[in-house]
């Protein structure tokens, strides 16, 4: 009986501590593990905010894609990947005056084996919603390809 009481006490203490300091995490903005983003091994290229839509996006890419966006080399025959992740913005509850990502909205993936300027040969995919349910978009994606590939890399010395 005593032992059970002790166990309860210890559990209570542990639980109590956890309640005092809950985990720090932005759940609604996280990408589902099933998307396996980290396996792509991409670098961060830039960030872009659309105040009208209230969205914030981050552009990622592999080294070859970053090189092309920087206008450094025009090495054509290598694989290039760009990923633009877009979130809804929310007011930062911890800092009046800041906005941070909230719900994950969509992920756009661009792949090419030549240049992104060769729009015809860019593979464009869009994944929407919190679970990023797959949807291939064949309609009017040239505008999006043009827009995404026109983003200038942010200076990160």
């Amino acid at each position: 009986m005593k032992r059970i009481q002790y166990c309860l006490l210890i559990f209570g203490l542990l639980f109590g501590c956890q309640q005092n300091h809950p985990e720090n995490r932005n759940r609604e903005a996280s990408l589902p593990a099933s998307f396996e983003f980290s396996k792509l091994g991409l670098k961060t290229i830039s960030s872009i905010i659309n105040p009208e839509l209230g969205t914030t996006s981050t552009l990622y890419g592999n080294d070859n894609a970053l090189e092309e966006l920087k206008g450094l080399t025009s090495n054509h025959m290598v694989e290039k990947t760009l990923v633009l992740v877009t979130w809804k913005q929310q007011d930062d509850p911890r800092w009046f005056g800041a906005k941070i990502p909230s719900d994950l909205k969509l992920v756009e993936v661009l792949k090419t084996k030549s240049s992104f300027k060769d729009y015809e040969n860019v593979d464009y995919r869009i994944y929407e919603g919190r679970t990023l349910g797959n949807r291939k978009d064949n309609l009017k994606n040239e505008d999006r390809i043009k827009f995404i590939t026109s983003i200038q890399p942010a200076v990160m010395p």
Partner: peptide, 8 residues
């Protein structure tokens, strides 16, 4: 791990 827009 996040990005912020600081209006301040």
């Amino acid at each position: 791990i996040s990005s912020t827009q600081r209006e301040d």
